[in-house]
Every structure is written in C-alpha cells, then in structure tokens.
Amino acid sequence: KYLVLALYDYQEKSPREVTMKKGDILTLLNSTNKDWWKVEVNGRQGFVPAAYVKYL
C-alpha cells in the first residue's frame, strides 16, 4: 500500500468521493484512473482528484 499527501482541501461532491484536508495522509487504494484516485481517509473509502494528492 502507498501513502499519499493531500496538497489541498477537497470537499466531496458525490457519495463516491471523500473529503480531505490539506496535509492529510491518505492510504492509496487504486490509481489506475489518471484523474481520480481511490483512497481511504478517516475510515472512509472514496475518490479524490489525482492532482490534489502526491506520493509520500
């Protein structure tokens, strides 16, 4: 498993997404889509914009 760092705040806009705050450390679950990565944060799984996170 990889960890990624939230570069920006992101507010979920659909039930498939998750909210994150700048500085959050997220567990990367799937990065096959170049635009949306599946992550786990605070016990929830969902998608965030790939451009908003970077590998640690």
Rank of each mutant, 00 (worst) to 15 (best):
40 E>G: 06
3 L>T: 09
41 V>K: 14
10 Y>Q: 01
15 P>N: 11
36 W>H: 03
38 K>M: 15
26 L>R: 00
55 Y>N: 09
45 Q>T: 14
30 N>G: 07
54 K>N: 08
30 N>V: 09
40 E>H: 06
28 L>F: 04
39 V>R: 00
14 S>T: 14
34 K>P: 15
45 Q>W: 08
40 E>W: 07
9 D>C: 05
23 G>Y: 05
12 E>S: 15
33 N>Q: 09
5 L>S: 06
30 N>C: 11
27 T>Q: 12
11 Q>S: 12
20 M>I: 15
54 K>R: 14
41 V>I: 15
44 R>P: 01
11 Q>A: 13
24 D>N: 07
41 V>E: 03
29 L>I: 15
30 N>Q: 11
31 S>R: 12
4 V>H: 04
39 V>L: 03
35 D>M: 14
36 W>G: 00
11 Q>W: 11
41 V>A: 11
19 T>D: 04
29 L>G: 01
56 L>M: 12
45 Q>L: 08
45 Q>I: 15
50 A>V: 06
41 V>Q: 10
17 E>W: 04
44 R>S: 07
11 Q>V: 15
48 V>M: 01
43 G>T: 05
3 L>Y: 15
38 K>E: 13
50 A>Q: 06
8 Y>H: 12
19 T>G: 09
21 K>P: 00
24 D>G: 03
50 A>Y: 03
32 T>H: 13
16 R>L: 14
7 L>K: 07
20 M>F: 11
14 S>P: 04
13 K>Q: 15
3 L>Q: 12
50 A>P: 04
42 N>T: 06
29 L>K: 05
39 V>E: 00
15 P>S: 12
32 T>N: 14
2 Y>E: 12
46 G>T: 02
23 G>D: 07
37 W>K: 02
41 V>R: 13
17 E>V: 05
24 D>E: 12
37 W>S: 04
34 K>I: 10
9 D>E: 05
31 S>Q: 10
48 V>R: 00
4 V>F: 08
7 L>G: 03
43 G>Q: 07
21 K>R: 13
56 L>T: 08
23 G>T: 02
20 M>K: 00
1 K>Y: 14
25 I>N: 03
11 Q>F: 14
21 K>W: 09
52 Y>R: 06
44 R>D: 04
7 L>V: 09
9 D>P: 05
31 S>F: 11
27 T>L: 14
10 Y>G: 01
55 Y>S: 12
24 D>T: 07
13 K>V: 09
43 G>P: 01
17 E>Q: 12
47 F>S: 03
25 I>A: 04
50 A>C: 06
8 Y>I: 10
5 L>P: 00
36 W>M: 07
